[in-house]
């Protein structure tokens, strides 16, 4: 009986295992290996050791890309997390039309990336785009979104703030699983909304939010690829919105430097791992506060 159960489980896992080895594990290994070679699809690969990495360190564009990526994460990750939580807290109650609002919250995330990017190209248009029209009507500043370097960097961050559907759903489910008696008690004890948020809701949601934080940090390194490629094309010149994924893409598919691109990918992986490790260390210090 147990053997049959195990066999059944293995059988059901097999398609997934196959997919993950062929589509994820194998390419990852190839990438790691390729980072040590020079390869342009035409000549056969040439082993260069850590040469690619030496070159990366001196590459001005790579350094700008790393800085851009880090700045993007610094602003995008906390804002995305705050947005997901705010949306979840706003929409966790039942009220008329709540389903429509929740769907609206998730929708930008499930729109194909390219369509989403093209839409923002229109929204950000400095002359007739709805964003600047609205800002003008309110008497606010009307930046030249895609041609001013600072504004373009913010534009990419703003674009990322609406694709928080997954984080929103996870936060929503977490909020809904909190026992309602706790909130009734808080009501009876005259706790003010902010007090309840800080003393009850946030600590109880913290384990999930930390998971979302790690996940979003990893994800955000890649989240700016399509916007940077389609909306800002890595500019305004020279490299205001050239992020690591775009750097990799350009080196691989425009300059046909596959080995060099692989080395950049490996660097990106190591930087991500380092950040997540640092986050984890910080979190572990005050983790006892959240253990439930």
């Amino acid at each position: 009986m147990r053997d049959r159960e195990t066999r059944g489980l293995v059988l059901m896992l097999l398609p997934y295992l196959f997919g993950i080895s062929v589509l994820v594990a194998l390419p990852a290994i190839v990438t790691f290996a390729l980072a040590l070679y020079e390869y342009d699809l035409i000549r056969s690969p040439r082993f260069v050791g850590l040469g690619n990495f030496d070159e990366l360190v001196d590459d001005e564009v790579f350094r700008i890309s790393v800085r851009n990526s880090l700045m993007f994460i610094l602003f995008a990750v906390p804002l995305r997390l705050a947005g997901a939580v705010a949306l979840a807290l706003l929409l966790h109650r039942r009220f008329r039309g709540v389903g429509a609002y929740r769907t609206a919250g998730v929708l930008p995330t499930v729109v194909p990336d390219v369509a989403y990017a093209l839409l923002w190209l229109w929204i950000f248009n400095p002359l007739y785009g709805p964003l600047n029209l609205a800002l003008e009507a309110l008497g606010g500043p009307t930046p030249r979104w895609l041609t001013d370097p600072r504004a373009a960097q913010w534009a990419v961050i703003v674009m990322s703030l609406f694709t928080i559907g997954e984080g929103f759903l996870v936060a929503l489910a977490t909020r809904q699983s909190l026992p309602h008696e706790l909130y009734e008690l808080a009501d009876l004890e005259a706790a003010k909304p902010w007090y309840v948020f800080g003393r009850v809701t946030l600590p109880l949601m913290a384990p999930t939010l930390l998971l979302l934080l790690f996940r979003d940090t990893i994800f955000s390194f890649q989240a700016n690829f399509v916007p940077a490629l389609i909306v800002t094309e890595g500019g305004p010149p020279p490299y205001a919105t050239t992020y690591l994924p775009l750097f990799v893409y350009q080196n691989a598919f425009e300059y046909l430097r596959y080995g060099y691109a692989a080395a950049a990918t490996v660097s990106m992986f190591l930087i991500t791992a380092a950040i997540v490790y640092i986050q984890y260390r910080i979190v572990r210090r005050w983790r006892h506060a959240f253990v439930v």
Partner: peptide, 8 residues
């Protein structure tokens, strides 16, 4: 259910 806050 007592409604005690589990983290406090």
């Amino acid at each position: 259910s007592y409604a005690l806050f589990p983290h406090l």
